[in-house]
Design a protein around this nucleic acid. Sequence first.
DNA 1: CGGTGAGAACTTTTT
DNA 2: GTTCTCACCG
Length: 706
Amino acid sequence: MDKLTPSQWKVINKSYEPASTIKVIAGPGSGKTLTLLYKVLHLITVENIKPEEILIFSLTNKAVDSIIENLLSIFENSHTNKEIVHQIGCYTVHGLANRIVVENEGMINIIEEIGWRGLMKLLPPSKRTPHHFRSYKELEKVVKDYKLNNAKNNNPVIEKLVELMDNCKVMTNDDLIIRAKKYLELDSSDSDASSFTQDLHNKYKVVLIDEFQDLYPSLAPLITMICKGKQLIMFGDTNQSIYGFLGSNNEIMSQLDNLHPKNFTTVLKLFDNFRSTPEIISLASKIINRPLAEKQIIDDTDETPSELVRKLPSGVSPQIMTFDDLAAESEFIIDKITQLICSSAKFSDIAILSRTNSHLTAIASILKKYGIPYQKLKSQPDWMDDLRIQFLLDILKVCSLASDEKHNREFNTGDKWQSNFSILVTMSALKGIGDASIQALYKACGLKNLSIWKYLTMVPNFEWPLGLSIKKKMENYTSNLYEMIENDQVHQLDDPMELLEKVASITNNLNLNPTYFQSLSDAQSSLEFKTHLQEMAQVMKVSKSNKPPGISFVKWFLETYFDQTMVFHQSQQALQTTGPGTVKLSTIHSAKGLEFPIVFLTNGSMSNFPMDTNALYVGITRARNLLYMCNMKHERLVSKSSPYSRSIMSNNLFWTYYNKDLNRSVCDVKVTHGYNVQRYNQLRKNFGFYRAYSSLRGCKSVFRRI
DNA sequence: CGGTGAGAACTTTTT
DNA sequence: GTTCTCACCG
């Protein structure tokens, strides 16, 4: 604990007081996380706050994971019981909202791409009307606008969609926040046993918010409600605000700033930068147009209100480069990685950050080609965003929900058919089913006051307002699902594998629209689907093993698969840390809060729109020692370095600095230099650098020998 | 029917 | 910053 600086101590020692606010402004590398952790420790050990009275918020799953991980290690070091960490509430804002809503109304549906596309089928087909959308995202926007100023705009079509969403418990993420707030208001005090919702009112005394610059206006109602009257401690840095596309950060911040009276509000700053080299910091300062920090300090007593550089110059400046195409860019990256590895860097020191996920996927396939071990830093596993898998899950939902509703067939309990949404979504994905058929069918169901499933199974097909070929397709749909729903098979199938097999075979029998799903005949995509299926099956098995009695497996799985997947995914990622290490791949957005000794920032040469200043700033400040930038289009960035420079390999001074910075042994840097160059040339020859890109095959396994 | 200018989308996250 | 669409004009 003696490592802490005076400004960090100031934050930690600020005493506990109900209904007060501490706002900590903390630049990159200023030890924000460390300060937050010691603040928690201080609250518990000195201020006598119980761990279960502390609530920690962040926006991304990754941030939450890293906080929990760090808490565990810090409590272990301070000889306190590690168990108390698990009593501290640590959530993403949405995770907490989800918990509140599910506690109050059971299984809900978060709408995504397939869902929106299904809803689009219910819109009138006429062009040149306000209801003609180019993509589902436009519909998403219109629905959002509609909800925002509800009464004002009188739009019957959208109104009906919203009604359908309500009936089927389909929500957007913004809805989740609003609902959660509603339940918090409702609950207020009286009710019975202790629930999660009530705990938020009564139990917590201190709320810590990590990365406050990431908050956006639609979160405000819930957050202010939770924080009011408690001690609010928030950490952040407005220069790193990269979620502007979700709404203004200033708006919610002014609400939070005014939550408690002025004289109960303290603003503190953490100045120092312990992370990056002066070379990197000066580039970062240039990007955000901040005066350069010249002062370098060595002793801890000094405190000046400007950024202070803690590290000595490394002698190596960031490299800024432009490439014409992906091939040239990736060749540079591979070559550079080879050089670094042949000096004293490890794979695990290197991170490649990109602005888009798609570019990241492209990079990943290139690394794979060369046999360079890599790991995608994603909070969700790949299979979760495979549309084909999502379709399977929707089929499962149809079966489960329709089967439940079957029992109230005679007693019409109003018009809330929760299965309707999933049915619409899955039917819309069928080949040859167009908007008109869906709408005609939906209207007919409305007239009879039946759910779509009941209509299709009870009303004789000559009454259906559909063409002959469409009728056939609908019958194919129902007959495929009939056994599962009407014979309750979906609830009886207790074995995950059998269930999955059944659903997969149903899907196979349905003739799906290829615009929704890339053709399965494509060998690579079919292989991908297979791996995703296997990964999903694994989670199903885990889910089966912890299923409580008295609930069918499908229901349990559908209600919990998201959480279970996350837990499973995290444990898998943790396992991969052994071995020669891996190059980390991540979007800049997900890399927030992390740091790496060596960072490559890349931006596919195809995507032309310029880099957002703050995102670039975040990317640059992830780097401790070395920084390479490819195709970063930004006005204050001038491309200069030669791409094929190999000077880094012979820069002994730098590698000594580097190893010292990472607390590694430095003795053998000089001795091995000759050998390093030899090794590099060997690898280069194996890879066939500077030849046509397409000839670079069979390069696998070269790196495995390292 | 073809040319032109205006405006929007592209991307990043949350269960 | 580039690319596409749509309304409008001659």
